[in-house]
């Protein structure tokens, strides 16, 4: 049986980098991996989704509705959008960060401020974490992704990998310490 992870957010939030580090770690653990990223139009401020499946042998690269064991959302409303993909009993990790889309900015649609409260009533395993706030506190919004990676590693109990060591292959040297701190902070948030 494969484990299915869905990463969702908005173009430019660093989802692709997070999925690369995650996949490299899973490969180190000896798993077969399939990962699916759809890019193109989504780069221009649209929704971005990455799907990662791992196990002894993985065939299909995609994840259908009600098939995700764990969803990590970089943004509140994207967690709401991805909710139908969560398996019953699965875990949702979401940043409480908000990014307004054009229909919201122009007043054509309303941003559902109470999305997390409603989700908390429905989803048993929900972790709302302030990854973006932590990144701001550390002084670089771009480490939000690695903070969320820390949280995901804790949830999935993927402790057999030296994640902090692995980060050196994926982030610039001058930002390595910051990323390690972000990882540790995210890990501690669960």
């Amino acid at each position: 049986m494969a484990t299915n992870i869905l990463l969702v957010g908005v173009g430019g939030q660093g989802i692709i980098l997070m999925s690369k580090v995650l996949a490299a770690g899973l490969a180190q653990m000896g798993y077969d991996i399939k990962m699916s990223e759809i890019h193109g139009m989504s780069q221009r401020g649209g929704t971005v989704t990455t799907q990662i499946r791992y196990g002894d042998k993985v065939y299909a690269p995609g994840i259908g509705e009600q098939e995700a064991d764990c969803i990590v959302s970089f943004e509140k409303v994207e967690a709401l959008r991805a909710l139908p993909f969560l398996k019953k009993g699965g875990t949702m990790i979401t940043d409480k960060h908000e990014i307004y889309s054009m229909p919201v900015l122009t007043g054509k649609a309303e941003y559902p401020g109470n999305a997390l409260e409603l989700m908390a009533e429905a989803v048993e395993n929900l972790h709302i974490i302030p990854a973006m706030d932590k990144a701001l506190e550390l002084g670089n919004v771009r480490v939000q992704n690695i903070c969320l990676l820390g949280a995901l590693v804790k949830v999935l109990k993927l402790d057999a990998v030296d994640w902090k060591g692995l980060l050196a292959d994926y982030v610039p040297e001058k930002a390595l310490d910051l990323n390690k701190q972000a990882f540790a902070a995210g890990y501690a948030m669960i």
């Binding site: 929704t47 709401l80 889309s101």
Partner: peptide, 20 residues
Amino acid sequence: NPQAGYSVEVQAPPRPPVLC
């Protein structure tokens, strides 16, 4: 056939790609 999953009452507002 898919099992019943999670749902909440509000809908996510659309997030279409836009000019930067």
